[in-house]
Design a protein around this nucleic acid. Structure first.
Lengths: 212, 212
DNA sequence: GTCTATATCTAGATAGAC
DNA sequence: GTCTATCTAGATATAGAC
């Protein structure tokens, strides 16, 4: 690997190893060896292993920011919806180690825990606005109670498809071929509440995605 | 704690600690101390820590067996459905450490991995039959493609509500007060495909469960 | 069956030379 | 900034007396 700034090299190497083997199974020595630096050097750049994980989480948040941001005068439609989901899932996939061991990372690193809760709240607001947009366009029809339960399930599925796929041993996590199926999964949750002709559009998208 | 058969004591203690702190955060010394026995004694009864986890998984499977079994002439209705779900989730909650670190347990313990995949397949078959029963009774109306996607999401949600609740820091995991909400969550996935009057029944159940 | 004592290993982290 | 060498802690697991 080309020698860039060492701190960035450590982060890139850690991310790759964490994603491949799972964060608990990657030691700092392991990272140093793979990055072709000494263990001491690693600790010159980072105070601890948790520090590396936390810094990666910050990068994750930054990557996600533009995907979660909705312009004030933006009018979300189904096209916009699947684009956002695809971008979001692609980003999550690049940092998938976070979701694989979310519970333990949150328990161990208070700052990460707080940041994750903030992210969940933000995701909920973004989804709420997206759904609200669909309703105001007459594309979606849903009651307030149903909308809350739907939001709960959307957040759960969006936060859990990665570890579930890992547990199932799905090979598509490595090469990204799982993404279309993950998006199809989420879109299918919305389908019952969509009116025509958007419902048919989404159905077509789902079919297309599943076959991809 | 009353002194029962030591092997059972170790299992009970391990289960409690694993659930409370997460399996990776509980050492064999920790278990021995809590069980009031020596570390050496623990290793007399179990070959390794993984052995304990695997034995607990077997107990989990045994507990789940009657819940997943459907009699041949059984006619699943909505009443049967919520009963099954409640029993299933209650059992999962008693062994929730398994779901909190499923990926790493599967990666580390091949036998557990195989057993879990077998369980997933069995759950899918049971759900398939339950849904099929609802359809044949005219309670549910759903196409073949939609049914497959619904099954996928049902399995995902059923396998993931525990770690998601842990990541959210939901206190209801300890005392079981989360169970009604978890069941409501799953029932809501089915709701769009139910006919009347069962749809209203389920809506009422969900409302009741959410308030509980 | 159970204990005490200990071997072995590996992880995270630091010290100090260069 | 980077390296080598090393410390420390804690985990799994075993040996051998009782």
């Amino acid at each position: 690997m080309v020698r860039r700034d060492t701190r960035e090299l450590i982060l890139a190497t850690s991310l790759a190893l964490f994603n491949r083997h799972g964060e608990p199974n990657v030691s700092t020595n392991h990272i140093a060896t793979e990055a072709d630096i000494s263990p001491g050097n690693l600790y010159y750049h980072f105070h601890s292993k948790d520090d590396i994980a936390l810094e990666l989480f910050k990068r994750y948040l930054i990557s996600l920011q533009p995907v979660l941001e909705l312009g004030d005068n933006e009018r979300p439609d189904t096209e916009e919806l699947w684009l956002r989901l695809h971008l979001m899932f692609e980003t999550m996939g690049r940092f998938r180690f976070l979701y694989r061991n979310l519970d333990d990372l949150c328990a161990r690193i208070p700052n990460l825990r707080r940041a994750f809760h903030g992210l969940l709240a933000k995701q909920r607001r973004t989804l709420e606005r997206l759904l609200g947009g669909l309703v105001s366009h007459g594309i979606m029809e849903i009651g307030a109670d149903d909308a809350q339960l739907l939001l709960d399930n959307l957040l759960l599925v969006m936060s859990s498809w990665i570890p579930f796929a890992e547990a199932e041993g799905d090979p598509g996590l490595e090469d990204g071929s799982i993404l279309p199926r993950a998006v199809a999964r989420v879109l299918h949750l919305l389908l019952p509440y969509l009116r025509q002709p958007e419902a048919s559009q989404i159905t077509a998208l789902i079919t297309q995605y599943r076959e991809a």
